[in-house]
């Protein structure tokens, strides 16, 4: 639970001391801007822009000579292999601030936004240094990840003539990791490699129906006594109260009775905009399913559709509909 009351007040007072201060370190680029590091960057990014790697093309361009990719700005002052140790300079006020958040339970950290502006493109031989200021700390916010605070920092980059060449800001969220995800007892504590759709829960009253889907059949439950069809399946007939039932297979032909186009929220595993329809099957029962391969603007009540049973992701088969030919 997030801190509250006087503890929160005191904590937020402590935070105030960090707003507006320099983090205490000046980052000096270890190498001047150079063609080898630029080439390495461009190879990694697949960036074939001649201004970065082809002296002839660069000379003929507005740049006039070889320049470094502007988004590489921060790369000139990062620490390289030394960063892998995880140790940080004890004078670093930004790290100190993060530790303060950690101590109050806001252990999660994620960068949410970054903005950069470039005064000029860097040329080979430029020597870059940078200073970082903690610009602001937000009030406590409720976010999708949990309760937390946004920290905004601004790093200003200067060249060998002490002229500003650009700046960047980072917005970082320090948040309290939600209890549910922290104490997840799932067998897999890590996210699967590809998101899959939500699977049905299976029980006595519906597992048989999903077994039919596995066998590529769209089943409709039928009362053994009065032969009324019913969907979704239930253990008793609402017409005659008989408990015995069997099922028939639908032809999958039907018409759209109503439909929606889902745009928000986008749940991983599904493709949006997502068309979901209540389809009136020719047998008379209705069924809820996706309508595929159609411009959402073309879907209409009354449209004829045909079901087929298909894999909708790596794992699940589902009856889906397409406009009937």
């Amino acid at each position: 639970m997030a801190i509250s009351g006087t503890e929160r007040e005191e904590f937020e007072k402590q935070l105030e001391a960090y707003v507006g201060i320099d983090i205490g370190l000046e980052d000096q680029g270890r190498d001047p801007v150079n063609a080898a590091m630029v080439r390495h960057w461009c190879e990694a990014m697949g960036d074939g822009c001649g201004a970065y790697t082809d002296p002839v093309q660069a000379a003929a361009s507005v740049h006039g000579e070889l320049v470094a990719p502007p988004t590489m700005l921060q790369a000139w002052i990062l620490g390289g292999v030394s960063m892998a140790s995880g140790e940080s300079d004890p004078r670093d006020k930004q790290k100190e601030l993060h530790r303060l958040f950690d101590s109050k339970g806001f252990t999660g950290v994620v960068a949410t936004n970054t903005e950069q502006e470039y005064t000029r493109y860097l040329k080979m031989g430029d020597e870059i240094c940078a200073k970082t200021v903690i610009e602001s700390i937000s009030e406590q916010k409720a976010t999708g990840l949990g309760i937390g605070y946004f920290i905004n920092t601004r790093t200003t980059f200067r060249d060998q003539n002490d002229e500003e060449v650009g700046w960047l800001t980072f917005r970082v969220l320090k948040f309290e990791i939600a209890e549910a995800s922290a104490s997840s007892s799932d067998e897999s504590s890590v996210t699967p490699s590809r998101p899959q759709r939500l699977k049905p829960a299976l029980g006595h009253d519906n597992a048989w129906w999903w077994d039919c889907v596995e066998k590529d059949e769209l089943a409709i439950q039928r009362c053994s006594s009065c032969h009324a069809l019913r969907h979704p399946p239930r253990p008793m007939c609402g017409e005659c109260q008989a408990s015995d039932w069997d099922f028939v297979f639908s032809t999958g032909q039907g018409t759209i009775y109503s439909f929606v186009v889902i745009r928000h929220p986008e749940v991983p595993g599904y493709t949006y905009p997502l068309v979901v329809a209540v389809v009136e099957l020719e047998e008379g029962t209705r069924f809820v399913g996706n309508v595929l391969d159609i411009d959402p603007a073309e879907v209409e009540v009354g449209m004829s559709v045909q079901a087929s049973i298909e894999l909708v992701d790596d794992e699940m088969k589902l009856p889906v509909f397409r406009r009937a030919q």
């Binding site: 699977k199 519906n206 599904y270 589902l318």
Partner: peptide, 8 residues
Amino acid sequence: SWYMPSGL
């Protein structure tokens, strides 16, 4: 479960 797999 009649609706989650279709995203409804």
